[in-house]
Nucleic acid binder design. Structure first.
Length: 163
DNA sequence: GCCAACGTTGGC
DNA sequence: GCCAACGTTGGC
């Protein structure tokens, strides 16, 4: 059997919509996903995200929890400029341009999910029970999404849109 | 290198 | 606002 062609890989980025929402991304078209200050998330941003990967945008700490849309990775391996900026709340003097501590990627708006895929609906879906998002105490803000999980989520977005 | 204290995240 | 879970810090 031929090796199945690897489709585009998918990730999930958490964001508080009060700070930055899918609407902000839709308006701006693309953005630098900077300010991530967690080593596990940093490793994914620096080493694993690839051009063209899909990014589910998850709204956290708000009234309507869930995946609000989809974006595409358009820039990888970027040293996080906010770490070098003394005026930024994300400033980190330990990170220097010659030896950056923190990395970010650029993403571009792809589409909104209307309505969003509610966290409740994700939790109720047996095939999605293993998602990092649902794991007890998971605070990782950049998460891998499995191929089957991504497929299921995209189906859910489609069905909800038709309903 | 251990581990207690602390700050933060994030669902409820 | 509560609080459990987690990552980080710093004294030893």
């Amino acid at each position: 059997m031929p090796k199945p062609r690897a489709g585009r890989r998918h990730w999930l980025f958490k964001t508080e919509p009060d700070v930055y929402s899918i609407e902000d991304l839709a308006r701006e078209g693309s953005t630098l996903w900077d300010g991530v200050r967690n080593y596990q998330a940093r490793n994914l941003l620096r080493d694993d995200l690839q051009l063209g990967d899909g990014v589910f945008i998850y709204h956290s700490s708000c009234e309507r929890l869930g995946i609000a849309g989809l974006a595409t990775v358009t820039g990888v391996g970027i040293a996080d400029p906010s770490a070098f900026d003394p005026a930024s709340p994300y400033h980190d003097p330990k990170s220097r341009p010659a030896a950056p501590t923190w990395y970010c990627v650029e993403i571009a708006f792809e589409r909104r999910f209307t309505p969003l895929i509610a966290r409740d609906a994700i939790a109720a879906e047996p095939g999605l029970a293993a998602m990092v998002l649902l794991q007890r105490g998971s605070r990782l803000s950049i998460q891998p999404v499995g191929a089957d999980e991504a497929r299921r989520l995209l189906q859910m977005a489609q069905h909800e849109a038709e309903a």
